[in-house]
Design a binder for these strands. Structure first.
Lengths: 226, 226
DNA sequence: CCTCAACTATGATATTTATCATATAAATGT
DNA sequence: ACATTTATATGATAAATATCATAGTTGAGG
């Protein structure tokens, strides 16, 4: 069982407010897991009963729309926590978490976390601030979906992927989403997404290297995204 | 200065966790305001420095999209609190709050509320749960915007307005939004919204009584909304 | 190395939605 | 009460997007 003290999640998440003793308590009760690409960490409607710390890898948070299509609501990467909302609301998960690449995560039971809420105010405030940040992003995201065209949303998403997750040595985007997943992020049909990528390619805004994408003209993309 | 003990906001919001002494402290420092229909309680980008308790009336929370159009993100009505996210995140307001009808609100300074976070855990948990609820709604809303057609969103919104705010004695919807505002809720052009209302009218799903709307066939509307 | 399935790509077409134009109705101020 | 603005309504058209069809490409497993 590895220690939590030097874990990356501790540095970046709400957990940074925990002291040595509290970290030791977590280290004792946590469960480490390896999640393979494509595997589900938890699914919409499931009772989670704790939170997951993402130690490595990226996952997509999705929600099934009544029309049967999956919408990617957001991406979560190393250093972040999963399942906080569900735990606090005492409700089943509203979103599914599915690994986009191999992941290392730790599960910490609800009982442990809820104890910290009572005793460690800084921790509570951190969690609250994180969720408030998520709420702001969700509202902003909603307005984008409602007001922007598919083209604008695609440009914006490409820039987001570039700025947030960076590139490989060959300049291709590090997070490798399928065209289908990219379409599901921007909320459009797969064919429309492919077609627009093709257009962007012809316009010299991006370059398609097999299934991978290179951003060639970020300034123009930003202008396009508004 | 009226007391807070019997106030409707106290019954329905996170404030219900506060004890008599705490309520008295609030009663002393709060400011009551009358907001006329159309007036702004606070605007996007403003520093709010406290929260507003909605004692009576309804307001819209809007965000300006880069294309210059206002998107209505949600409606807030009596018994609810405004400006919590901004206060907790220590950021300017992300949304504007504008009265849809005459309102009574009370302003409670930030300093007072932050004090309760330290001393009253139940209050903290209530606030956290409220924000978690907001986050779930925002995510769901986002998926709707991304995946549903304008027609589906209109049907869904009409049902929401009916179920949440009810009807007048003549069966018309109580919240009276202009066609423009309704369009801004569902994220479409005003003309498209008007046209669809007209279609729904011809199909017998709704009835247009001047600028007001009566839902005639809720079952069919629900089917339409998915 | 080959085969099958899944993914990517593109054309043709239908549907949805936005935009522009114009008309009518309702509200507002003087 | 009238003029002026503002909101609602509808038609015509253009633009955006989805859907259906089909073909090429890639990658995994035998």
């Amino acid at each position: 069982m590895s220690k939590c003290e030097q874990c990356i999640v501790r540095e970046f998440s709400s957990l940074k407010a925990l002291n040595k003793d509290e970290l030791l308590k977590i280290a004792e009760c946590k469960t480490s897991k390896i999640i393979k690409k494509g595997e589900t960490i938890f699914a919409e409607g499931e009772n989670v009963n704790g939170i997951f710390c993402v130690k490595d890898g990226i996952c997509k948070m999705t929600k099934l729309s009544p029309n049967g299509k999956d919408q990617i609501v957001k991406l979560v990467t190393k250093g972040e926590l999963l399942g906080q909302r569900s735990m606090i609301s005492e409700e089943p998960a509203n979103l599914s978490a599915v690994a986009l690449e191999d992941m290392q995560v730790c599960f910490i039971p609800k009982t442990e976390i809820l104890g910290f809420f009572d005793k460690n105010n800084q921790f509570s405030m951190n969690v609250m601030k994180t969720i408030c940040g998520d709420l702001k992003l969700a509202d902003d995201h909603m307005v984008n979906m409602a007001q922007k065209s598919v083209k604008e949303r695609l440009a914006e998403t490409l820039i987001y992927l570039h700025e947030t997750f960076g590139t490989n040595t060959d300049k291709t985007l590090k997070v490798q989403l399928s065209r289908d997943e990219l379409a599901s992020m921007i909320g459009t049909a797969t064919e429309s997404c492919i077609r627009l990528l093709s257009d962007f390619n012809k316009l010299g805004l991006i370059e398609l290297v097999g299934k991978k994408i290179v951003l060639k003209d970020i300034q123009k993309l930003k202008k396009l995204a508004d």
